[in-house]
Structure formats: structure tokens, C-alpha cells
Design a protein around this nucleic acid. Structure first.
Length: 418
DNA sequence: TCTGGGGTCCTAGGACCC
DNA sequence: TCTGGGGTCCTAGGACCC
């Protein structure tokens, strides 16, 4: 059996957690630059505020109902996530952290009544962090997702925990579940399935396997098996990322090469930091620049470049060199740039990689980077930095940023009590 | 005026190999 | 006149997730 545990309205719950005045009020959290709605409390959902809606289009609604608005505070959410995950990790030897607010647990070998077990998790997370969670338990990961959905939809009947452990319960769930709400079925597949008369998950498992394979690839077929109760999707045990990216929409348009260069160099630095933290080297880097797609009257330009590195590296200095070279080759003058990003991929372990015959990462950089990382960790995030980067790492509009309650002592002192 | 960010997986088609 | 077949690797793009 697998459990899928997730936090209810995670970002909104984190904000509410530290300010009791917010209990019972509609809360929304906005994306970077305060652009779109990316999280809503239950009350905000009731008002009909849509996920992903541009904030400026919702302003009237916000004013009318006194919606509490927050700029995304990922430092806070990340820290709360670590706490929740750490508690849940005690409930199984095998945990897969699936997203910032979700994890799977392998419950094989757990002897207790699973419903009680789920309730115990919920109580402990609430006691230690104050965050509400929902628990779905079933024989496959896809069914655990479905069970979780039921737990969330019917909090009174389920108390936030739902277990699918018989065929009867499985079929009952599939009759209730819309096909578009199945984990792995997106808009495109849902539309295709609707055309073929499939509206509920139960209709989907009745389709011939050959049709599913032909029209939805192996992914669709695996999904179908999972809904039938046959486990196909396994627990992911690798904790290292396979790619790392930093991308941003700018608050204003950028025109010059130097402005973009500063951003690309800063993004590269952030990616390299993350890369070293997971003790990897990368063999590939890609970067892109884009104009504002919402300004249709202006000249549009979107270009990316993929760079195969001559040797694996995690040196910020070396990566920056490649990044600037890449940017030079795709940059065009006289345009209004609005977005850019850097992605590192093709990782190898730092401890056990093959040296190249002709080109290798500068061996001095390894120690240099280690020293820089240690100093920055000890004193201040950007105490030592490459001169091309801006001290203001994120140039974003964050008009309503909450304090980093759990990670920044200065922030905590600033919070007014009462 | 104002429109997010970070991931994973699969497939088709081209380039290349023998 | 008649010009193969099997395989791998790479990459762009699509689809999906939260």
C-alpha cells in the first residue's frame, strides 16, 4: 500500500499559521512580481478566485471581499515543508518527496490499521507545525492520489484520511472521479477522452489496452493499469535532481546586452550553488531569452541555446564563461526582453566522474568554490560573489512579503506582537 | 500599467554507426 | 534497371505535474 500525503492549501496555510488574525479570512498568495494567483485558502476558493488568474484582473474582487494578499515567500514555505516532510518520514522507511507540499510513503509492512495510522500522521503534523494535511492510502500511487482527493473533498466523513483497500471501494472511487482529475491526465488527454465518451475514471479502465497505447502512449497504459489496482509506478528513491533551473520574468523590460548578461550570470550562479549542494557536476547547460508575449504589437523574439560542455563542472566561474558565450550568440539588439532563464542538466556525481583526455575543469576551482560556499553559508548569502552579478539577486515586485518567521532572526524580531 | 517558476517523462525524426 | 537493415544517440517539442 502507498500513502499520498499533502498539505491543504499549503502556501495560504503557511501564511495563516503565523498570524491568527487570518483565521476564517480569504487569503491568496501571488507569484513572483506579484503577477498571478498561485495559492488560495478555502475561503478564497469559495469566492471563485481562479488558480493562475492575473492579480490585476482580480483586484476588484480582492477589495470587495477584503482578501488578504501575500507575495510568495518561498523561504518560509521551504522551511515549513522540511519540517512536515521530516515528521512524515518517521512513518515509513521509504519516503518520496514529490513536491514542496506532497510526499508518498511506502506502507508495506505496516501492521496497524491504516486508517488509524493516517489519522496519527495528521494529528502529529498538526501538533508540531499547525498545518492541515490530507492522507490518501491505496494499492497504487495513482489510486492513493485519488483517495487523497476524496479525503479532501469530504473532510467531515473521512476526517481527512481515506483508504481504498477493497475492490468495492476502488470502483466506487473511480465512478466518482472525473477523468480530468486523474493524476497524469491533463487538458489535452481529457479532451481526447471526452470525445470518446470517457467522462469518469471508471469509463477509462474499460477502454481496450490497444486503444490506450495507440492514443496515449505507454504513459496512458501505465495509468490504466494503476487505476485497475496493478502497481506500475514505483517509489522514486533518488533524491538528486536531474535538472536545475533558474528563470525569471523581469519587472521591467530590458534592452541592453549588459542588463541581460547580469541576469544570466546571476541565474547561472544560483543554479551552480544548487548543483554543488547536491554534489553533482553538469555536462550540459541551456539558456533562453524572450520578449513579452503579452505585448503582441511589438516584435516577438524567443531563442534558446543548448551548450554541451567540454567537461563536467560545477564551477560558477566556468559555467558563467559558457553562459556569456551562449548569450552572445543568441542576443539581438533593439528588443524589449521580459524573461530569461538558465538550466543545468546531464549530471554526474562529483566524486566519481570520468576525466576527459584533453579538457577538464580547472582543478583549482573545486577548492575555491568550496571556500566561497563555506564563507557565504557562515556569514551572508552573497558576501563573496562574481562582480558581474547584482547584489539584488531577485529584481522583483514583492509588495506584500511576509516575514521569514522560521529562518530569519531579524525578521522575527521585527514582527509586532499583538 | 499589471500575466510565475521548477520539474519529469515520452516520442519522432535526424544523424550517425557498422 | 536493380542501392539494406539494424542499431544508438541526440534533440526539439509536447504533455503533464505541483
Amino acid at each position: 500500500m502507498f500513502a499520498l500525503i499533502d498539505c491543504n492549501n499549503f502556501y495560504a496555510s503557511c501564511e495563516r499559521n503565523f498570524d491568527p488574525k487570518l483565521v476564517g479570512k480569504p487569503i491568496v498568495v501571488l507569484s513572483n512580481n506579484d503577477g498571478c494567483v498561485i495559492a488560495r485558502s478555502e475561503e478564497a476558493k469559495q469566492l471563485g478566485i481562479q488558480m493562475g488568474a492575473p492579480a490585476f484582473q482580480c483586484q476588484e474582487q480582492f477589495d470587495k471581499h477584503g482578501v488578504e494578499i501575500f507575495s510568495a515567500n518561498f523561504t518560509l514555505y521551504g522551511d515549513m515543508s522540511r519540517r512536515v516532510m521530516s515528521i512524515l518520514s518517521k512513518y515509513s522507511p521509504v519516503q518520496e518527496i514529490y513536491s514542496i507540499d506532497e510526499c508518498f510513503l511506502d506502507l508495506n509492512g505496516i501492521d496497524e490499521d491504516l486508517s488509524q495510522y493516517g489519522l496519527k500522521m495528521k494529528k502529529q503534523v498538526d501538533l508540531f507545525t499547525g498545518l492541515p494535511i490530507s492522507v490518501g492510502i491505496a494499492p497504487t500511487k495513482t489510486l492513493a492520489k485519488a483517495a487523497n482527493r476524496i479525503a479532501k473533498k469530504f473532510p467531515k466523513q473521512t476526517r481527512g484520511v481515506h483508504v481504498i483497500d477493497t475492490d468495492e471501494l476502488r470502483l466506487k472511487a473511480l465512478k466518482w472521479l472525473d477523468i480530468g482529475d486523474v493524476w497524469g491526465i491533463g487538458r489535452r488527454s481529457a479532451a481526447k477522452l471526452h470525445k470518446n465518451g470517457v467522462y469518469k475514471a471508471i469509463d477509462f479502465i474499460k477502454l481496450p489496452e490497444s486503444w490506450v497505447l495507440k492514443n496515449m502512449t505507454i504513459v496512458g497504459l501505465n495509468l490504466q493499469k494503476e487505476l485497475k489496482g496493478l502497481p506500475v509506478i514505483e517509489m522514486e528513491r533518488e533524491e538528486k535532481h536531474k535538472s536545475i533551473s533558474t528563470t525569471r520574468t523581469f519587472e521591467t523590460d530590458y534592452h541592453s546586452f549588459d542588463q541581460l548578461k547580469e541576469r544570466i550570470v546571476t541565474f547561472t550562479t544560483l543554479c551552480a550553488d544548487k548543483l554543488r549542494r547536491q554534489n553533482s557536476l553538469c555536462k550540459r547547460m541551456s539558456l533562453f531569452i524572450k520578449t513579452n508575449i503579452h505585448k503582441e504589437t511589438r516584435t516577438q523574439y524567443s531563442k534558446s541555446i543548448d551548450i554541451k560542455l567540454p567537461f563536467p563542472t560545477s564551477s560558477t566561474l566556468e559555467l558563467i564563461e559558457f553562459a556569456v558565450e551562449g548569450l552572445t550568440s543568441i542576443f539581438k539588439e533593439n528588443l524589449h526582453y521580459k524573461r530569461a532563464g538558465v538550466t543545468l542538466s546531464d549530471f554526474v556525481d562529483a566524486d566519481q566522474h570520468q576525466l576527459s583526455l584533453f579538457f577538464n575543469s580547472n582543478p583549482k576551482h573545486e577548492k575555491l568554490m568550496q571556500a566561497v560556499d563555506e564563507i557565504n553559508q557562515k556569514y551572508h548569502k552573497n558576501l563573496i560573489r562574481v562582480a558581474t552579478t547584482d547584489t539584488q539577486t531577485f529584481k522583483m515586485k514583492q509588495a506584500r512579503l511576509s516575514p521569514c518567521y522560521t529562518t530569519n532572526i531579524d525578521d522575527v524580531i521585527k514582527v509586532k506582537i499583538g
